[in-house]
Amino acid sequence: MSLTPVHIEFIATGALWTVGLSAIAFVGGSILGFALALARISPVPFVRRCAGTYIQIVQGTPLLVTLFLFYFGLAVVGFDSLPAIVAAGLGLVIYSSAFLAEIWRGCLESVPKTQWEAAECLALTRWQRMVRVILPQAMRIATAPTVGFLVQIVKNTSLASVVGFVELAQAGKLVNNTIFEPFTVFIVVAAFYFVICYPLSAWSRSLERKLNAGRR
């Protein structure tokens, strides 16, 4: 047996799920991660500590284990017939949030303190200082590592297969189980990953160029 258009279509559907799951992980992880990054630089020590603890726990747990915890853990507490995408999505959101929070905290902190001070001396509120002065500078620094991490997320969605989610890698495996042509199948799978990840990197480069426009 060889690879037929039906198989390709099946793999393509898996690729779509990979994109969808990545999007969920990135959007959810960004919202949560941004809040966490802000909490990490909060003037209130208690808030800083809470966010720090959360991040350490999540970063110290392998993604595989996080996914299992959500899949089986949610079943234990009564969410029995949870679709795989919910468990996988939740696990990846939690995972992304911790890493994005740390990336962004670093970017926020790399803006010199004197910038905060100069903005403060102009009577800007803390929020205005953040939004008008610090964030634009931090974002410029954050673009490359953020998209780099987004590529990591895309690749890590392959772990979602452990909770029964058929994404790109799992789709490849299933196809291979029927036609036993691992090399061909996984070349196709790799090509799909490339098609997803390459535009991200290109986008990062163009974004960086745009943010730096007029400054060179």
Binding site: T114, Q115, E117, A118, A119, E120, Q137, R140, R215
Partner: peptide, 17 residues
């Protein structure tokens, strides 16, 4: 207070963006 007082530092501290 800061509306009434301007301060200029040795290192300018302009907003680069």
């Amino acid at each position: 207070l800061r509306r009434d007082v301007g301060i200029v530092f040795q290192s300018y501290n302009l907003f680069p963006h």
